[in-house]
Nucleic acid binder design. Structure first.
Lengths: 134, 134
DNA sequence: CACATATCTACACTTGACGTAAGGTTTAGA
DNA sequence: TCTAAACCTTACGTCAAGTGTAGATATGTG
């Protein structure tokens, strides 16, 4: 139907990952080509690119690929897909949410520590190197 | 000097890690016993426990052990230690700070997505299962 | 001192997330 | 149709962050 299909090389370049990574993600069920006959070349459409971007973002948040597999469909599934095991999905999402809240708290605290320490260090630095105005 | 020394088994139990992990962290320079003669048993004081807690917290934020090694001393070092390579430490901290800021942004976005999807799911769920009031 | 635990070192193994290379197949273009 | 480039599968390699285990040593207690 769509005309904007691309092959794995194009997709990999655009998303900034290797082809190997895409193969690997496919084996984990994170992504799949729209069409394929036997061992022919994989063809992808735009959603595949969006998925790779989303996977990268979730990875930066510290999710493992296994965890990502549990939530990625919520970004791309249609209502029909949701109909099976909806309650399970809700539970997973709520679990993720509380983990995220904890992480947000810890991250803010770490941020405060960092700023405080940077200031402390810079203060010490100024004290130790006052000879800058030769 | 202090009287509250503990051995590796106690420390491991309290911190919820294995002894092997503590050995491993020692090899990476993240932690070390207060006293040791040859191959005798390692003795730790309270700071070791605090270090393990801090390491766990930083790990939850997604820092690698190598990155942790770069910042952990800021929590426990005294002023003297700071005196060597202060500017380098400042640079590392500032680098971490900008990474943390990026991560905070992404995490907030992810949180919004999660909440939105949970609401969406619960709406669908209510629609699909109205027979709850038998 | 004897003995039961607790620790010691060293080497090997595991898991997640890929990297790299070999050898064969598909596809696009002249 | 012929060929080069892109892709295919299969399989071994790597790196981080541990975990397992064996055989030797250290330590605390009766």
């Amino acid at each position: 139907m769509s005309v904007d299909n691309m092959k794995i090389g194009d997709l990999a370049r655009r998303a900034g990952v290797s082809q190997r990574t895409i193969h690997y993600y496919e084996r984990l069920g994170l992504i799949s080509p729209v069409a394929r006959e036997g061992a022919s070349h994989r063809l992808y459409e735009e959603e595949a690119f969006a998925r790779l971007e989303k996977i990268a973002a979730l990875k930066r948040l510290g999710l493992s690929l296994e965890e990502i597999q549990q939530v990625i469909d919520m970004y791309f599934a249609d209502a029909d897909t949701h109909l099976q095991g909806k309650q399970k999905v809700i539970d997973i999402l709520k679990g993720q949410l509380s983990k995220v809240d904890v992480q947000l708290g810890e991250l803010s605290e770490f941020r405060r520590d960092l700023i405080q320490n940077i200031q402390h260090m810079e203060h010490l630095y100024d004290d130790a190197v006052p000879d800058k105005r030769a």
